[in-house]
Structure formats: structure tokens, C-alpha cells
Design a protein around this nucleic acid. Structure first.
Length: 288
DNA sequence: TGGATTTGACCAGC
DNA sequence: GCTGGTCAAATCCA
């Protein structure tokens, strides 16, 4: 078995374990913050696994490097920045930037020496209101422009529930790189027009459209997370297919929880994804 | 008009 | 002096 395949399997096993813990977390009503951390980590794991399976050799090297960087806690450039690197994470997202569920505001863009693509600098929108010092840097890969390398510096200390602009990290970040930088802005503002509901659905998915054939979606009905709009807009509209049941190569049968392919009425979506208890039950069925 | 992005200038580390 | 990170005025858009 190739080294990369072992890494992928290891990644997926980690994702499965984290998902189990997340379900357990939700069942025992642990803090939403810890659940968010788990969700973020699960997303990262699946993104990496997908990318490793789909990359050419060069791309695999990029991913390996990103993992090495993550382990080493990069950003040695400045002493001042060292103070902030207690939580540096590097992600690689293909197709679009990884949506981490937080709202970011761009504060700079810089041409980077030796790189053909500029690096965008984003800070949490709650930086001034809640003194949240989380920062992220987004840069297109030189080798594959469809890949975003995202570096997170610092932890969110804000309460994400109160993020005022109902926008997403993905729409913010992609806007700077797309053709016509304003397109992204318009799109995310249209997202904000969607009716706001007290019950939101947070999605964990393999986001890239290319992988819709093997796409699995888990929905988590969450009363406490207010801003889920971006997750919906990116995932629902592009990736979902009718609900099916599949059997994985390992023999594990899993029900794919999905929604209609084109979702305009978010009320329909909410009815599609039932209660948190159902999701927890689903998880228990899968891994019992 | 307010909020967000763009972009040149400035600052600090090497 | 070079480079990366941040600031802030200008600009854009709903």
C-alpha cells in the first residue's frame, strides 16, 4: 500500500473517531464551542483525504508540506507574530476555500515573493467588538490555482453567534481571487437575504462538486448556532442529491442524509433535516 | 450612507 | 535593503 494511501486511511479513521466524539458531545449537550472545534477538525481531515486521493504527485507534495507546516506551527518570520502562533493551522482547500463558519474581514493583500498569487489577509469581524484576535491568510496555490492554502493564526475568542454580517468566510475569501472581485461580494450579500431562522442546519460535507458521486452529508440541527447561511449556500445548492443508502468498501452501510438538489425555500430544508436527536440516533446506528 | 474591499504606504524582522 | 504583515484612506456597492 502506498504511503499516501496509508495517510488517507489514517485521516479517515481520525475523522470517524472525531465524528463519534462529536455525536457523543452533542448528545450530552457539551459546549457548542468544543463541537465547533471538532467539526472544523473533521472538515480538515476529510478535505485532506479527498485531496490526497485526487491530487497528482505534485499536489500530494503540497499537501504533505501543509501537514508538516501544521505540525511545526509555522510563521517564524517575525518575533511579534510568534506571539500569535500558538494556534497556527494550515489547510488546503480545492475548488473553493474551506468554510470555517466564522466571519472574516479582509484587511490586506500582498504580493508574495516567489509566488505568482497574492496572499489575502483576513481578521475576525469581531476583532474590535469582542477583541477576537483570530487571523487567517489565504493564498492560491501556484501549482494548482483551484487550490487555496489557508493559514489560521490565533484562536477565536469571540462568540460566533453574534457575528453581525451574515456572511461566510468562503464568500469573503473567494471574492478577492475570482474574476471581478466584486462578484463574490454580491453573492454573499444575496445569501444574507435568505430568511433567517431560529433553527439552523450546520453541514459537514465534502464540499467540492467533483466528488458529489461519493458525497456524504451529515446534518446537525443546532439551535444555538445562528450564522449557518454560508454553509447552506455553498453546499446545498451545488452538492446535494436525493437521499440514498450506500455501502462503503469497508462494509459499513451508511445512510446519506441529503436534501433536494435545488433548494430555494430554506423552510423545506429544515423540515428535511429533522431534530438533533435524529442525527445523534443516526450516528449511533452507524457506529454501534 | 454604512459596511466591506482595495491598495499604496508604513513598520518591523532578518 | 528586502520581505511580509498591518494600517488607513479611497473606493465600491446595495
Amino acid at each position: 500500500m502506498a504511503m499516501e494511501e496509508k495517510i488517507v486511511i489514517n485521516e479517515l479513521e481520525q475523522g470517524r473517531e472525531l465524528t463519534k466524539r462529536l455525536i457523543n458531545n452533542l448528545k450530552h449537550t457539551s459546549s457548542i464551542e468544543s463541537s465547533k472545534v471538532m467539526i472544523s477538525e473533521i472538515l480538515r481531515i476529510y478535505q485532506n483525504a479527498i485531496l490526497m486521493l485526487s491530487f497528482k504527485e505534485d499536489d500530494k507534495n503540497i499537501l504533505k508540506r501543509s501537514r508538516e507546516i501544521e505540525v511545526k506551527n509555522v510563521s517564524k518570520k517575525r518575533k511579534e507574530s510568534d506571539k500569535k502562533t500558538e494556534d497556527v493551522k494550515v489547510f488546503v482547500g480545492k475548488g473553493q476555500e474551506i468554510d470555517d463558519g466564522y466571519c472574516w474581514r479582509k484587511y490586506g493583500q500582498k504580493e508574495i515573493h516567489g509566488s505568482s498569487n497574492p496572499r489575502g489577509y483576513f481578521r475576525c469581524t469581531n476583532r474590535f467588538t469582542q477583541k477576537c484576535l483570530a487571523v487567517k491568510q489565504v493564498q492560491r496555490s501556484d501549482k494548482d490555482p483551484s487550490i487555496f492554502e489557508v493559514k489560521y493564526v490565533g484562536n477565536h475568542t469571540c462568540n460566533n453567534n453574534s457575528t453581525s454580517p451574515k456572511t461566510t468566510a468562503a464568500s469573503f475569501s473567494v471574492s478577492m481571487f475570482g474574476e471581478g472581485s466584486r462578484v463574490g461580494l454580491r453573492e454573499q450579500r444575496e445569501d444574507t437575504k435568505k430568511p433567517k431562522k431560529t433553527e439552523q442546519v450546520m453541514m459537514i460535507s465534502l464540499e467540492d462538486v467533483e466528488y458529489k458521486d461519493i458525497f456524504r452529508t451529515y446534518s446537525i440541527s443546532n439551535h444555538e448556532i445562528e450564522d449557518g447561511g454560508g454553509w447552506k449556500s455553498n453546499i446545498f445548492q451545488e452538492n446535494l442529491s436525493p437521499a440514498t443508502t450506500t455501502t462503503s468498501g469497508s462494509g459499513m452501510t451508511s445512510e446519506i442524509v441529503t436534501a433536494p438538489a435545488a433548494v430555494e425555500d430554506w423552510g423545506d430544508v429544515d423540515s428535511y433535516f429533522s431534530s438533533l436527536d435524529n442525527i445523534i440516533d443516526l450516528g449511533q446506528d452507524l457506529w454501534s
